[in-house]
Amino acid sequence: MVIYINGQFLTKEKAVLSPFDHGFLYGMGLFETFRVYEGHPFLLDDHLERLNQGLEVLNINYRFEREETNNILQELLKVNHLNNAYLRLNVSAGIGDIGLQVEPYINPNILFFPKPLPQAGDLTEKKAVLLELRRNSPEGSERLKSHHFMNNILAKKEIGHAVDTEGIFLNEKGCIAEGIVSNIFWVKGNCLYTPSVQTGILNGITRQFVCELAKKHNLSVEEGLYSLEHSLEADEMFVTNSIQEIVPISTLEGHEFPGKRGQIVQLLHREYRHYCKSLWSRHGLRSE
């Protein structure tokens, strides 16, 4: 596999970073993962917008633009002979002295990692289990997609290797929050519910897109602080992320849901397929 690192395309064996990188020493780094469909990086603008906002918070002086980023991605796809792929864009703060730095980071390390994926397929449902581990609070005012991933790793360790299961966090106040690698939604009547970012969740790019998609189809969308019991009264439940897309949930805490037979999840999945090879941002839905 060839990766991109600081302007070079190198085999993964030749890619190196300094041990004095503050992404390694202090976790000062961010990443985005997104999916490429037939060469198109779906919702790339939204991923870059979130990344740029996070870089400001971490005081890393760098900004990503679509054209330059997409040029790198297209070359990376070409050299790896990929058309459908998983892409991870990683920004690490860069080299610094031992000790906490308050000055801006001006030479971050920038990496792109590709991984082959098959063509997107049909809905695949999962079971959900409630985690004993609680979702930790964000380090700042809002959760960033950062190198601080221990809470997620411990949660994954709790549920094990089962690929057909997603663990669901409650936050420290007992509100339903999100999955280990996903955001959670449930449907009751004509309303789509999802936990607010005030619960401490990551504001997922697919989460934001699904909210816009639901509104486009005249579903009301409510974001709030909800108990587990509220979600268990749902007609349908599903989770989302940028790689797995929309994943119907069949069971949670002994409650059964329609899973991939759910009407709303099928509607949203069809629409997702319609846009995934062309849309750069969720805002493109509003211009139609």
Score class of each variant (00 low, 15 high):
Asn203His: 11
Ile168Ala: 02
Ser182Phe: 01
Lys216Met: 11
Lys173Ile: 12
Phe185Cys: 06
Gln208Glu: 05
Val197Gly: 13
Glu222Pro: 00
Ser227Tyr: 14
Arg207Cys: 04
Ile249Lys: 04
Lys260Cys: 04
Val210Met: 11
Glu223Gln: 15
Gly174Asp: 08
Gly179Met: 02
Glu142Pro: 10
Ile246Ala: 11
Thr240Gln: 06
Arg207Ser: 04
Arg207Gly: 06
Arg261Leu: 07
Ile153Gln: 09
Glu172Asp: 12
Glu245Gly: 05
Ile180Gln: 11
Glu212Val: 06
His148Leu: 09
Thr194Ile: 05
Gly179Thr: 06
Thr165Tyr: 08
Glu256Leu: 10
Ser242Lys: 02
Asp235Pro: 07
Glu245Val: 15
Phe185Gly: 07
Gly200Glu: 05
His255Leu: 13
Lys156Glu: 11
Thr251Asn: 08
Pro248Arg: 12
Glu256His: 10
Lys188Gly: 06
Lys156Ser: 07
Leu154Val: 03
His217Pro: 07
Glu245Phe: 12
His230Gln: 15
Phe238Cys: 13
Ile201Pro: 00
Gly254Leu: 10
Val221Gln: 03
Glu233Ser: 15
Ile201Tyr: 01
His217Ile: 05
Glu253Gly: 14
Ile205Tyr: 05
Ser182Arg: 02
Ile168Trp: 03
Glu233Lys: 14
Ile159Lys: 14
Val163Thr: 15
Thr199Pro: 01
His147Trp: 15
Asn241Asp: 07
Glu223Val: 05
Cys211His: 03
Thr194Gln: 01
Gly160Ser: 15
Val221Trp: 09
Val239Cys: 05
His217Tyr: 13
Lys145Tyr: 06
Glu158Asp: 09
Gly204Pro: 03
Gly167Tyr: 12
Glu222Gly: 01
Phe185Lys: 02
Glu172Ala: 13
Gly167Lys: 03
Pro248Asn: 14
Leu228Met: 07
Asn218Val: 10
Ser250Asn: 07
Pro195Arg: 04
Ile180Thr: 08
Phe257Val: 07
His148Trp: 09
Ile246Thr: 04
Glu229Phe: 13
Leu154Ala: 14
Val239Pro: 01
Asn151Trp: 06
Glu142Ser: 11
Glu256Ile: 14
Asp235Glu: 13
Gly204Phe: 00
Ile184Phe: 03
Ser146Tyr: 03
Glu223Tyr: 08
Leu170Pro: 04
Glu158Arg: 04
Ala234Ser: 05
Phe169Lys: 03
Glu229Ser: 09
Ile243Tyr: 10
Ser227Val: 04
His161Lys: 09
Ser227His: 10
Phe209Val: 01
Thr165Leu: 13
Asn190Pro: 00
Cys191Ser: 07
Ser196Phe: 11
Gly179Leu: 04
Thr240Ile: 01
Pro248Phe: 05
Asn190Arg: 03
Ile249Gln: 05
Lys157Glu: 12
His217Thr: 05
Gly254Met: 10
Glu223Pro: 04
Leu219Phe: 09
Ile184His: 01
Asp235Met: 00
Ala162Leu: 14
Leu225Val: 11
Gly174Val: 00
Gly179Trp: 00
Asn151Lys: 04
Asp164Thr: 07
Asn183Thr: 00
Ala162Gly: 08
Leu232Met: 15
Glu212Leu: 08
Ser146Gln: 09
Ser182Gly: 06
Lys188Met: 06
Gly179Tyr: 03
Phe238Asn: 15
Met237Ser: 12
Glu158Tyr: 08
Gly254Ile: 13
Ala162Phe: 12
